[in-house]
Design a protein around this nucleic acid. Structure first.
Lengths: 112, 112
DNA sequence: TGTGATACCTTTTACTTCGAGGTATACTCC
DNA sequence: GGAGTATACCTCGAAGTAAAAGGTATCACA
């Protein structure tokens, strides 16, 4: 049986979503624009990325959804659960680890 | 026709390889251990990742290979070309961009 | 002789992410 | 009334990277 861990750098879309939803609840379409904003245009995630991740996080119990009708349009607001908060912490830690690993590799030229 | 850009977070293995080879020439097996070392164990890339990347970089003209016989064993040393140096610069810039984008998103918000 | 380290390589699988599409409502402008 | 744009949801298929596992061969050493 062949099994494979996820690629070591993955999960950043998830991290960003969880982070934003940790501050306040938002809906999918809003998150798409918000991510572009808060990353200073460095990262743009389309709806084809956002919605599937949102759904899988909800299935996982990291988010809970709430439908709201605003101006005739339906929005699905997502809020972090306790489980989601834990997952955020974990992913954040992993990110820091990778990030400082790369930083260490890119730094020092001090050799022969 | 459907075409897709590479995932926005990819290319870190390549970046690390190019970086190390920018300091001195090394061979594949050595790079595997070296990456683990210089990233303080944060990143471990197996041979199944290293060798294919090495080969594709060579095909691309970013690296040039040189076979050496040492103690009866054959080693394939790789060195950066001018093209490789350019690629390193580009990837490094992209990484910085992504990295600071994530950092901005993760910062404390100072809001209500 | 057989085990472990060195050194190369490839193939298969798993996984994420991307792009393009599709639906529907509301608002504006002509 | 019709066209066009913005909002808001969604899904499917393709693309591409990285992971794991396996395969070969040499050398050392016990």
């Amino acid at each position: 049986m062949r099994q494979s861990n996820p690629p070591f750098m993955s999960g950043v879309p998830e991290l960003l979503l969880l982070r934003l939803l940790g501050q306040r609840e938002m809906y999918g379409y809003e998150l798409v624009r918000s991510i572009k904003l808060v990353t200073n245009d460095a990262i743009t995630l389309g709806e084809g990325v956002i919605y599937p991740v949102l759904h899988s996080l909800e299935r996982n119990g990291a988010l809970k959804a709430k439908r709201k009708k605003v101006d005739g349009r339906t929005r699905v607001y997502y809020a972090l659960t306790a489980r989601g908060r834990k997952r955020l912490e974990r992913l954040h830690g992993e990110w820091r680890r990778i990030q400082s690993g790369v930083a260490a590799a890119m730094e020092e030229p001090a050799n022969a």
